[in-house]
Design a protein around this nucleic acid. Structure first.
Length: 273
DNA sequence: AAGGTTACCTGCCCGC
DNA sequence: TGCGGGCAGGTAACCT
């Protein structure tokens, strides 16, 4: 599920449902997530007003009045539901009881996500956030910036934009999509990116993420309201998941390769090295 | 130090 | 029908 647009969508979904309320109780059904759910989560996070919900990279941050921040990452398969009546499902790991009687439920099949908390003053230097790069939708993310951070790297550009070190939020789907829209070959060494290519890639990363956020809202809602239909958006993808299907520009069959253990899709004709 | 590989975990889909 | 292999939107710990 979750790349940056989905996390942003979950944030928008959660905010009106939990902001201004409190968690009265927390039931940790299973603490063995990517990072173990801390024993003191209950003490730190209950009975304090929920002030705001933000997103940093692919993390959700729920700020409480007592200066604690509830940190949630969805990994590959994490989901959050807020509901009036507790619905028990397989792979539920943490249940938060709200003071209006609602329940917020964290469910994660593969347990690659995490639910933890930290004092807000310790966030920036924590292991979760200290190494993260800039937000792709911020004004700081420009072609000039991308060119600068690429200039000493031999790493293939697709892998480079997915590392969260200099730039965050770009996942496996949108990396392929943005490179296709920019006509850049995914194996291009980062250092050989021209300024024009960097400008184009930045423009396309931003526009694809923004479009996905715009559509993600309704799709996630469908996902929740209907019945766990997977693969929303697939019809929007120009290359992702389209191996051997015709390129939407030139009809050449889309090629699939593996980079850093992840599938990459591209057009051999439109995206020259 | 950078770059590549593997592990974490469960479910699903495909081919035999 | 059953089983094994491969793959899945993320991240970090290992190797070299």
């Amino acid at each position: 599920m979750p790349e940056l647009p989905e996390v942003e969508t979950v944030k928008n979904y959660l905010s009106p449902l939990i902001k201004g309320k409190e968690f009265n109780a927390i039931d940790v059904l299973n603490d063995k997530l990517r990072v173990k759910v801390p024993k003191n989560l209950v003490n730190h996070v209950t009975n304090s007003n929920i002030e705001k919900i933000t997103r940093r990279a692919k993390y959700l941050l729920i700020y409480l009045k007592n200066d604690q921040v509830l940190i949630i990452h969805l990994g590959m398969t994490g989901k959050i539901f807020v509901e009036k009546k507790l619905k028990n499902e397989k792979h539920d790991h943490v249940i938060f009881c709200l003071n209006n009687g609602d329940f917020m439920r964290y469910n994660d099949v593969r347990k690659f996500g995490l639910v933890t908390c930290l004092n807000k003053n310790k966030l920036a230097n924590s292991k979760f956030f200290s190494h993260l790069g800039i937000e792709p939708l911020s004004d700081d993310f420009t072609g000039k910036y991308l060119k600068e951070i690429c200039k000493n790297s031999n790493t293939e550009i697709k892998k480079f934009i997915m590392e969260q070190k200099k730039l965050v939020g770009v996942g496996n789907i949108y990396a392929s999509e943005a490179l296709f829209s920019s006509k850049i070959h995914p194996e291009t060494p980062s250092r050989s990116l021209s300024l024009n290519e960097a400008n184009s890639l930045v423009k396309n990363i931003k526009s694809i993420l923004i479009q996905a956020i715009a559509k993600g809202g309704s799709t996630i809602k469908d996902y929740r309201l209907v019945n766990g239909e997977s693969g929303y958006f697939q019809h929007e993808f120009k290359v992702y998941g389209r191996e051997n299907n015709p390129c939407k520009i030139c009809a050449t069959p889309i090629k699939k390769i593996v980079q850093a253990g992840r599938s990459t899709f591209y057009c051999i004709k439109c995206q020259k090295k």
